[in-house]
Design a protein around this nucleic acid. Structure first.
Length: 431
RNA sequence: GGAGGGAUGGCAGAGCGGCCGAAUGCGAGGCUCUUGAAAAGCCUUGGGAGUGCGAGCUCCCCGUGGGUUCAAAUCCCACUCCCUCCGCCA
């Protein structure tokens, strides 16, 4: 969440900044008013409590001095104040909870240099690399769901039989490819990032820390009986790994990566782009993430973007990079770059990575701070992350791009080490 | 799942219901002594909030949330987590 103090010192500026994310001004004003009320009540409660404490001390002293009647009088007075205090505290607790909820729902302030725009139409294409429509023959203009059936490497019907639609089932070389892509991503980033294999089911505060809750509860799978949530991305457990801790500045930046399954209900997107692997409820992804100082953030953002792009380049897929406009920026995001790959079979650009800077929005929620080397008060960290590689859409673009005239799928050389000697996916491998 | 034990500051570890935000030790930082270092001695050393121009003042935090009390780290209840043992199990 954003710093409440902003609402006290820079209310107008904050309203203007959030207006770029289409947040109505009265929502911000409401939070500011709640904050003022909360502080007023806190001061009132503090004063009452201070008097109760001081009177209580005097009760003890009077008893010790053998003046029971005086002790009794002080005790009665303190009791009365205590009752008053209880009333104020009850009110304060209520206001605090309302304020907290309002703050959790306010999105992050967008970065100054994020482009303005009302919707995804306002996103800016920064560059397009390797895209040449003339290079594709008719054998490439086959959508991956058809290729998947043909080679028996993607079986959406069986997936649906088991779990419902949008739960893909890969088999044979298709399954190997899905796993190989993850392994490739982990291997490519192991030079600088520590691999983590976190739990896939998390508690409510963990999902709250990244900004998914309370606002977007419908998008996540929730296991009622145990009150656990299935992670929509490894960003969720990784961000909370050091939650509530004060880190030493010299241990920053933290660089973490994790392979996890990702679960998304896609409640708001029902029916859109749902063919094949374009949008699924469960998929595998390797995420890279950093916890760092504000000063380290810009370079880290650049680095994570380059790493995301690097994997796509290694796979030989055309891609483009988008600068996400304020109207399309997620709740927690200050600035995001999306990487999209071109899929010739369905003739679409598919988002395969979103590389984002969250400023201190998530870290404040998660309570991740660092102790500055030169001394001074503890600072809230910044967090950044991006997909190193998300399987289904890359799988789709790759299969379409590398389909040969004979129907087989050639494998780019960087994947050969993961294929037990094979260099293509053909019928024989696909049984 | 069952039975026990535990949770206190960076760590270890005390803590009769009142003067405990908390002894003591270690660690860390500063100073003295020393050519330098070690040793020794002295001092400092948690986090958060409110308020004030400021020195400051006030409040909250002893796993979490409730309760009892004039007063709770200390008593009561619930929950969470950790440890030991039993059971079950990939």
């Amino acid at each position: 969440m954003i710093d409440v103090r902003r609402l006290r010192t820079d209310l107008e500026q904050t309203k203007a900044a959030l207006a770029r994310k289409r947040v109505p001004a009265d929502e911000v004003e409401r939070a500011a008013a709640l904050d003022a009320a909360a502080r007023r009540l806190a001061t009132q409660a503090d004063e009452l409590r201070a008097r109760v404490k001081s009177l209580s001390r005097q009760v003890g002293e009077a008893m010790k001095a053998g003046r029971p009647e005086q002790a009794e009088a002080l005790r009665a007075e303190s009791k009365q104040l205590g009752d008053d205090l209880a009333v104020v505290e009850r009110e304060a607790t209520g206001v605090d909870a309302t304020l907290r909820d309002a703050m959790l729902r306010l999105p992050n302030i967008p970065a100054d240099d994020a482009p303005d725009g009302a919707s995804e139409a306002g996103n800016v294409v920064l560059r397009t690399v390797g895209f040449d429509p003339a290079r594709y023959g008719p054998h490439n203009r086959v959508p991956h769901w058809d290729i998947g059936n043909e080679l028996r490497i993607l079986d959406l019907e069986r997936g649906a039989k088991i779990s419902g639609s949008m739960f893909p089932l890969f088999r044979g070389g298709g399954a190997t490819l899905a796993r190989a892509l993850c392994q490739l991503a982990l291997d490519r980033n192991s030079d600088a990032f520590t691999e983590v294999r976190p739990p896939s089911l998390v508690r409510t505060p963990v999902l709250e820390a990244v900004g998914q809750l309370p606002k977007f509860a419908d998008d996540a799978y929730h296991i009622e009986r145990d009150d656990l949530w299935a992670v929509p991305t490894a960003e969720v457990p990784l961000t909370s790994m050091r939650a509530g801790e004060v880190l030493a500045e010299d241990e920053l930046p933290l660089r973490l990566m994790a392979y996890t399954p990702c679960f998304r209900r896609e409640a708001g997107a029902a029916g859109r782009d749902t063919r094949g692997l374009l949008r699924v409820h469960e998929f595998d992804k390797v995420e890279i993430l950093s916890v760092c100082t504000r000063a380290q953030a810009p370079a880290m953002h650049e680095e994570i973007l380059n790493r995301a792009i690097g994997a796509i380049e290694a796979l030989g897929l055309p891609y483009r990079v988008l600068d996400i406009c304020t109207g399309d920026l997620g709740q927690s995001h200050a600035r995001s770059f999306d990487v999209e790959v071109y899929a010739p079979g369905c003739d679409m650009w598919l988002e395969v990575s979103s590389v984002s800077w969250f400023s201190d929005y998530q870290a404040r929620r998660a309570g991740i701070r660092y102790r500055p080397v030169g001394g001074g008060p503890n600072q809230i960290c910044d967090t950044l992350n991006g997909s190193a590689l998300a399987v289904p859409r890359v799988w789709a673009a790759l299969v379409e791009t590398y389909r040969q005239p004979d129907g087989s799928v050639a494998l780019p050389s960087c994947l050969h080490p993961y294929f037990r000697g094979a260099t293509s996916i053909a019928g024989s491998l696909a049984t």
